[in-house]
Simulated assay, not measured.
Amino acid sequence: MYRDVPDPWHLAERWYERRKYDLTMASLPRDRYRRAFEPACSVGELTVRLAERCDRVVACDRVESAVATARRRTSILPHVDVCHLTVPGQWPLGSFDLVVLSELLYYFDAPTLQRLLGHAVGALEPGGTLVTVHWNHPVPDHRGTGSTLAPIVGSLPGLTLTADHRERDFVLQVYERTSTDGTAAPSPAAREGLV
């Protein structure tokens, strides 16, 4: 799809996409993150937004032309690395306090999906945030929708659901990795001493 058009989904132009990215960013429970990972970053629209709230962003895509576009868009952001990787077979080293799986999970069969989710949770620091966003309409190339993927992610051990935004068009969920003692991370209000 990227062969003829640099942005085949018109991610930069559509109000639907901009609104979804804004809701994704607003759902993050922390103001700042140390190190974020965004696989399947496409042309970097969400990557640029993540860069505003993260000290370091590692983004990747399996499509080289998408990587080239995302690199151009983030070239003035020295704390953003965009690389050519295909998850889950390739995964960056180190841990993250934010992993964003946006418009990605429905491409995988069940065993590959479980492998990818295992990498994501395994790389997530205790108290870290996992965000998932899924298109919620059937598509011939997709193996699921937001409604079918949400319970799969929700069944993963070690995660606590902290936000669940559902619309006809997409499902956006936020999870936090439980601490080593089994406790959930404090809510945004608790972090600021409001509760």
Rank of each mutant, 00 (worst) to 15 (best):
Y2L: 12
L11K: 07
E13S: 13
E13Q: 14
L23C: 05
T24W: 07
T24M: 09
L28T: 10
D31I: 14
R32P: 00
R32L: 13
R35D: 06
A40C: 12
S42T: 07
V43R: 02
E45C: 09
L46C: 06
T47C: 07
A51D: 08
A51N: 11
D61T: 05
R62Y: 06
A66E: 10
V67E: 08
V67S: 12
V67W: 09
T69F: 02
T69W: 09
R71H: 03
R73S: 11
P78D: 14
C83M: 15
T86W: 00
Q90I: 04
P92V: 02
P92R: 01
L93G: 10
S95R: 09
F96W: 00
L98K: 05
V99Q: 07
A110C: 03
P111L: 09
L116D: 09
L116E: 09
G118K: 00
H119I: 03
A123N: 01
E125M: 14
G127N: 05
G127F: 07
G128M: 10
T129D: 08
V131P: 07
V131Q: 04
H134D: 14
H134K: 02
N136V: 13
N136Q: 10
P140H: 09
R143G: 14
R143Y: 11
P151H: 11
G154I: 06
P157S: 14
T162D: 10
T162C: 11
A163Q: 13
E167L: 13
Y175E: 06
R177K: 15
R177E: 06
G182D: 05
T183L: 12
A184T: 14
P186Y: 07
A190S: 12
R191V: 02
V195E: 15
